[in-house]
C-alpha cells in the first residue's frame, strides 16, 4: 500500500502530461476542424501523405542502421576499456547531447552550405562547390549525428554487463576473437541493439527540424507535415490524425522488435 502511495505523484504527472494530451490528440483526430463534429475525414486524407510517410520511415530506418554500424563498435570499445576510463568515455559520448539540438543542426548547415566551411576550403583547392546540403544524405547525416548517442548508450550498457567469464569460456572452447564475437557477444547484446534502434528510430521518424534545415523540397518528412498543420496550415485536426497514425505505427514497430528479440535475451541480462 505504501508503495502505491509513493507512486501517486508520478501517476498524477503521467495522467496530466501524457494521458490527457493523448486523449486530446485522439479527440482532435476524429473531429472536424470547423464544425467540431465527429468525422473520419482527417484519417482518410492522410492517404495524400503516404509517400512522405513511407519516405520518413525509410530515412529513419537508414539512419538507425548507420547509427548501429557506427555506434556498436564504439560501444564495444568503451565496454572493453579500463573501468576508470569507461566513465570518461561515456561522458564524451553524451557531451554533444548537452548542447541544444537546434544549435547542433545549424552548425551542420554552416558546414555543408554551398558557401559553407567545407565548400570554402574545397574552393581554395579549385574544386567547385559540392551539393552537400538539401538532399537525403544531409538529412540522414543530421539524424545520425544527433541520435548516435542514443544508440551507443543502450548497447554499451548491455555489453558492459556481459560476464567476462563467458568470453573466457568461449575462448576455452576454441573460439578465436571473431567467433567469440559472433557466438557470444553479439547474441547477448541483441536486447541492447533493439533498444538502441528503437531509441534512434522513434525520434528520427518524427523529426521535423533536421529535415527542414538540412533537407530540400523533396525531403519533407512527416514531422514537417505535422508541424505545418499546426503552425501554418491551421489544421490541427489533420496534424493530430497524422500524429496518431504515426504513433500507432511506431508502437507496432517496437512491439514487433520486442517480439523478435524474444524473452531469452532479457533473461540473459540477469
Amino acid at each position: 500500500m505504501r508503495v502505491r502511495g509513493l507512486a501517486s505523484p508520478y501517476l498524477a504527472w503521467m495522467s496530466i502530461f501524457i494521458i490527457l494530451p493523448l486523449c486530446a490528440v485522439v479527440y482532435y483526430a476524429f473531429t472536424d476542424s470547423v464544425t467540431g463534429e465527429f468525422t473520419l475525414r482527417n484519417i482518410v486524407s492522410i492517404g495524400n501523405y503516404w509517400p512522405i510517410l513511407i519516405k520518413s520511415i525509410w530515412l529513419a530506418l537508414v539512419s538507425s542502421l548507420i547509427c548501429l554500424i557506427l555506434g556498436y563498435p564504439v560501444a564495444l570499445a568503451i565496454a572493453r576499456a579500463k573501468q576508470s576510463r569507461q566513465r570518461f568515455l561515456i561522458l564524451l559520448v553524451m557531451l554533444p547531447m548537452s548542447m541544444s539540438f537546434l544549435l547542433r543542426t545549424i552548425a551542420w548547415v554552416s558546414l555543408l552550405e554551398d558557401t559553407g566551411i567545407i565548400n570554402n576550403i574545397l574552393g581554395k583547392f579549385g574544386i567547385s562547390p559540392l551539393p552537400l546540403i538539401r538532399n537525403n544524405g544531409a538529412v540522414v547525416l543530421g539524424m545520425v549525428y544527433n541520435y548516435l548517442p542514443y544508440m551507443i548508450l543502450p548497447v554499451y550498457t548491455v555489453l558492459s554487463h556481459i560476464d567476462p567469464s563467458l568470453i573466457e569460456a568461449a575462448k576455452d572452447l576454441g573460439c578465436n576473437r571473431t567467433q567469440v564475437f559472433l557466438k557470444v557477444i553479439l547474441p547477448l547484446s541483441v536486447s541492447g541493439i533493439i533498444s538502441g534502434v528503437s531509441m534512434v528510430f522513434v525520434p528520427a521518424v518524427s523529426t521535423f527540424y533536421i529535415s527542414k534545415k538540412l533537407g530540400g523540397s523533396g525531403t519533407t518528412m512527416i514531422g514537417d507535415v505535422i508541424e505545418s498543420q499546426f503552425k501554418t496550415a491551421y489544421n490541427p485536426n489533420l496534424g493530430a490524425a497524422i500524429s496518431l497514425v504515426l504513433m500507432v505505427m511506431v508502437f507496432i514497430c517496437i512491439g514487433l522488435m520486442e517480439r523478435f528479440s524474444g524473452s531469452e535475451e532479457r533473461e540473459a541480462l540477469m
Binding site: 567469464s165 563467458l166 573466457e168 557470444v184 533473461e267 540477469m270
Partner: peptide
C-alpha cells in the same frame, strides 16, 4: 578445457 568456478554457461 576448463570447468569454471562459477560455471560460465552461456545464458542465450
Amino acid at each position: 578445457n576448463t570447468i569454471f568456478q562459477r560455471y560460465a554457461l552461456f545464458p542465450h
